[in-house]
Design a protein around this nucleic acid. Structure first.
Length: 572
RNA sequence: CGGGGUGUAGCGCAGCCUGGUAGCGCAACUGCUUUGGGAGCAGUGGGUCGGGAGUUCGAAUCUCUCCACCCCGACCA
């Protein structure tokens, strides 16, 4: 491809409404253009990348024996009423009506359609297991689309669905899919983690999210440095501390703390180690509880894990923090002065709090704290539970290694659905036993367009994008220096371009009559992995210049045999 | 949905407070020069100032209203 005939429209300035680097770079390179909130066009440049990702997904799915198909994007409401999701799916479901007044949706996902096909076409266990997939534009009417294609309303998704005679078969396909997904993200050149996820209310057994690791990720994940354990921070179990509670060494004292209403203020004003403080959070109690409110205790430097808290039977679901008025009315002190001693509501302590001694906490009187508190001696130890978020350095729940924290971008999700949809829609087959069996299902998603943005988040520098080679829009950039004036340069560049193209390499040949700096900057901005510069200077010595996008060093390569030399440098 | 903010040329912005018919940088176009890290000079084109209504002799500017977009939160995954 020559730049003179390719639609290359780059911008030096960063658009004002792009927050994260992938969005900024996708706009500056011209890969995408916004049509309206959360809806984007892909330019020829962006589309090349999107297709690369799509093809890797397709090839690996096909290789595993899964069957590609294409389902309608527009679906009749009846199907959604059948599973109850016409009402339950919520505002993300884009509903529309045809001229006859019939209701439709623009598909945000395709469980209903595929289950309808399955119940019509699958009759016998002999047809199972079977896995269908498609790569298609989805629409979810996000409340707040943002970050460009990272969280768009219209996006490209690979969605797959498997059907089985029993749970064992589902489990087998699920773990195969786990491997297929790992291969896909590896092939795309991305650093990722498979993360255990919340299987949620649907009741399916297993669920994993695949996260591309990037500092700007919306999800926090915890993973072990000594095993392949990884979990969403919400789900990462914290093991009880191994040590015994130390014996008391201090007396309990009631101290005036007029200006300390947060742990931070307390620690600063009294020069306390933060690990010696206890935070008291008050939430609504479960209806079965004798009290309206319940207190949750975590160490001053820890944070409450709301997912863990809400799972406790004593705590109301959904979790709701008590208002300041409720706290004052019930306890008689403000939220900045609460603690377990002489507390008139039930309380649950995090396991880390249970092994503390000589600690500091609120006195349940405004502007006063108790110092030197000890369990049993000053106040009975309450119920103990795992309440806090894991932190860096906690032992891994599987007993191997320590936890590290990282941020991730969710690009894939695999899920054992069970029979939720097949039951609702009566998708059954005859088994070997001659009886009807409701088919357990799995569903498997990959955010294809989101991968493009995630790849940029993970692979960029201050000059622009540094594409992993398998998803780069072009692999080699050929840049002639001052070609207008030099026949030799022009001829050498044309020849290299022709040779590489002939060899099946995707080359972008910059034949614009622009200054070298413009070429360098554009090619670096759009992130082409390999660059070859051809100039008079080098040709005099029979040399070309080669540079890897991620390197800052030029390398001279002989003009003679340059094609072979360059081909050897391409990866994959 | 609640709170905050912004809409002026393709992009980034000034002008608005204090009303007098629109400007800067980049980009684009033409010519000449230039050509190893976003060139220089000269010239050119491009804006119903988000829409509507009102106040006024006169509105980008003041008032009302609608719309769009962005940010924070809630919601959703």
């Amino acid at each position: 491809m020559k730049t003179s005939t390719f639609h290359l429209v780059t911008s030096r300035e960063t658009p004002a409404d792009a927050e994260i680097v992938s969005h900024q770079l996708m706009l500056r390179t011209g890969m995408i253009r916004k049509l309206t909130a959360g809806i984007y066009s892909w330019s020829p440049l962006g589309w090349r990348v999107l297709k690369k990702v799509e093809n890797i997904v397709r090839e690996e799915m096909d290789r595993a024996g899964y069957l590609e198909m294409l389902m309608p994007a527009v679906q009749p409401a009846e199907l959604w009423r059948e599973t109850g999701r016409w009402e339950d799916f919520g505002g993300q479901l884009l509903k529309m009506r045809d001229r006859a007044g019939r209701d439709f949706v623009f598909g945000p996902t395709h469980e209903e359609v595929i289950t309808d096909i399955a119940r019509n076409e699958l009759r016998s266990y002999k047809q199972l297991p079977v896995t269908f997939y498609q790569i298609q534009t989805k629409f979810r009417d996000e409340i707040r689309p943002r970050f460009g294609v990272m969280r768009a309303r219209e996006f490209l998704m690979k969605d797959g669905y498997s059907f089985h005679i029993d749970e064992d078969s589902l489990d087998k396909t699920y773990w195969e899919m786990y491997e297929v997904y790992s291969r896909i993200f590896s092939r795309a050149g991305l650093k990722f983690r498979a993360v255990r996820a919340d299987s949620g209310a649907i009741g399916g057994s297993a669920s994993h999210e695949f996260h591309v690791l990037a500092d700007s990720g919306e999800d926090q994940i915890a993973f072990s440095d000594g095993s392949d354990f990884a979990a969403n921070i919400e789900l990462a179990e914290v093991l009880p501390p191994p040590q015994e509670r130390p014996a008391p060494t201090a007396d309990i004292e009631l101290i005036d703390t007029p200006d300390a209403h947060t742990i931070e203020e307390l620690v600063n004003q009294f020069d306390l180690p933060i690990e010696k403080t206890v935070k008291t959070l008050v939430v609504e109690a479960a209806e079965t509880s004798a009290s309206d409110l319940i207190a949750l205790l975590v160490r001053g430097d820890h944070t409450l894990n709301e997912f863990k808290a809400v799972k406790l039977e004593q705590v109301a679901s959904p979790l709701r923090f008590a208002t300041e008025e409720e706290i004052r009315e019930t306890i008689g002190a403000g939220p900045g002065s609460l603690g377990p001693v002489k507390l008139n509501i039930p309380c649950i302590a995090d396991a880390s709090v249970a092994v503390m001694s000589d600690f500091v906490s609120g006195a349940n009187q405004d502007n006063k704290h108790y110092f030197g508190i000890n369990w049993d001696r000053d106040v009975p130890l309450p119920a103990v539970a795992d309440l806090r978020n894991a932190i860096e350095g906690d032992p891994s729940p599987d007993g191997k290694g320590k936890l590290r924290l990282a941020r991730g971008i969710e690009v894939g999700h695999i899920f054992q659905l069970g029979t939720k949809y097949s039951t609702a829609m009566n998708a059954v087959v005859l088994g070997e036993d001659g009886k009807s069996h409701v088919m357990p299902m799995g569903c498997y998603g990959i955010g294809v367009s989101r991968i493009v943005a995630a790849a940029i988040e993970q692979n960029h520098d201050d000059r622009g994008i540094c594409w992993p080679e398998p998803i780069a829009p072009f692999r080699v950039a050929v840049l002639p220096m001052n070609a207008k004036k030099s026949h030799r340069v022009r001829e050498a560049a044309e020849k290299l371009y022709a040779d590489l193209t002939e060899a099946g390499v995707e080359v972008l040949y910059d034949d614009r009559n622009v200054r070298p700096g413009v070429m360098f900057n554009d090619m670096e901005l759009i992130g082409i992995p390999h660059r070859v510069v051809i100039g008079e200077r080098g040709l005099d010595k029979g040399l070309l210049e080669y540079r890897l996008r991620t390197s800052s060093e030029n390398e001279n390569i002989p003009l003679e045999g340059a094609l072979k030399n360059i081909l050897a440098r391409l990866s994959g």
